[in-house]
């Protein structure tokens, strides 16, 4: 009998395969199985579980991460996050002050979004049954404005422009730096609620799809889009906004920033006619000052993501298999 490894939870190919096996256990399941479910009346719901080591990191903590993560899954589908349910699983002996610290951070995000805590669940389990604190967040909201056709990968068209709202990999690099004892001044997680950044785009008729790049990073989102629509995606390396801290961490640990997690950075697909306006709107918000057009959707090389490198070479961007591990080689 095969056992789960951390790779099954790291957001790449193994996760995708496991989710398919899980969905196979259910007689009825959604056909698109996105992070967020939208009902015919335009209401949406999402649910996400959170654990991170360390629980406090530059740019955020577990509590902030949980609320932002859940709210972002709604925001990228054009749904205003309005209500929150939080489930807490804490280990016996956990410091109550730390617990409240996480919730104060979560509360600050909710306050800014005018999002209301409406319910939840609290469990304390024997020492060793969980590693400190696990949070699960369920966010509810409503499409704003209502649209006839939902935003999502299904709307991608050849010729669409792809925008990235900020440098890739800041959350993943921050966590990796903490775990492997690298001191990187200026590097912070991008952990943020995306609704205020993305909401202005919702009035653009050419807006096709948006995705927050979490585990698996920007590369994984691009691969998922290409595969789900059987279209090709071409991106250009030199157009990607880069964070010097991410570059340093990736160089030192032998990691690819394209696969490092983000927690407040999204890929946006928009019809070419609306691309300039979308970029202008993104850049006018503090979270999107470094937004850039990174590529296009194409009919060439269906299912594949091609990256043109800074020297003019081309290579495939594939989903990472398994957990990202630092390398010496």
């Amino acid at each position: 009998m095969s056992r789960l490894t951390l790779g099954h939870g790291s957001g790449g190919r193994l996760t995708q395969q496991l989710v398919h096996r899980i969905a196979g256990c259910f007689p009825l399941s959604g056909h698109d199985m996105e992070d967020c479910a939208i009902a015919p009346d335009g209401s949406g719901a999402t649910m996400d579980g959170f654990t991170v080591t360390p629980r406090f990191f530059s740019g955020g903590n577990l509590g902030k991460l949980a609320v932002c993560g859940a709210a972002n899954d709604l925001a990228v589908r054009g749904i205003r996050p309005e209500q929150l349910l939080l489930s807490v699983i804490a280990e016996e002996g956990f410091d109550e002050e730390e617990l409240l610290e996480h919730f104060r951070s979560a509360g600050a995000v909710c306050g800014a979004l005018e999002m209301r805590l409406v319910g939840g669940d609290t469990k304390v389990v024997p020492r060793g049954a969980v590693d400190g604190l696990f949070l699960s967040a369920c966010a509810l909201g409503r499409e704003e404005p209502r649209r006839e056709e939902q935003l999502g990968a299904a709307r991608l068209q050849p010729g669409d422009t792809l925008l990235l709202t900020g440098p890739a990999g800041r959350h993943g690099a921050t966590i990796a730096a903490a775990r492997y004892e690298l001191n990187v001044p200026g590097l912070a997680s991008d952990c943020a609620a995306l609704w205020p950044l993305l909401a202005p785009l919702l009035s653009l008729p050419g807006l096709r799809a948006m995705r927050d790049c979490t585990r698996g990073g920007v590369g994984t989102v691009l691969c998922e889009w290409a595969e789900s629509r059987h279209l090709g995606i071409s991106v250009e390396e030199r157009t990607f906004p880069a964070d010097p801290g991410v570059v340093s961490v990736a160089d030192l640990l032998g990691l690819d920033p394209l696969y490092l997690a983000c927690e407040g950075t999204a890929v946006v697909a928009v019809a070419p006619g609306d691309a300039a306006e979308a970029l202008r709107l993104l850049r006018s918000h503090p979270l999107g000052t470094e937004a850039a057009a990174i590529g296009i959707v194409t009919e060439n090389h269906p299912n594949l993501v091609s990256l043109t490198t800074h020297i003019g070479g081309r290579r495939l961007v594939d989903m990472p298999v398994g957990e990202l591990l630092p390398r010496i080689c």
């Binding site: 730096a177 690298l182 340093s248 160089d251 030192l252």
Partner: peptide, 8 residues
């Protein structure tokens, strides 16, 4: 220092 990272 390597880039902006400082290590032992």
């Amino acid at each position: 220092r390597a880039g902006t990272a400082e290590v032992l």
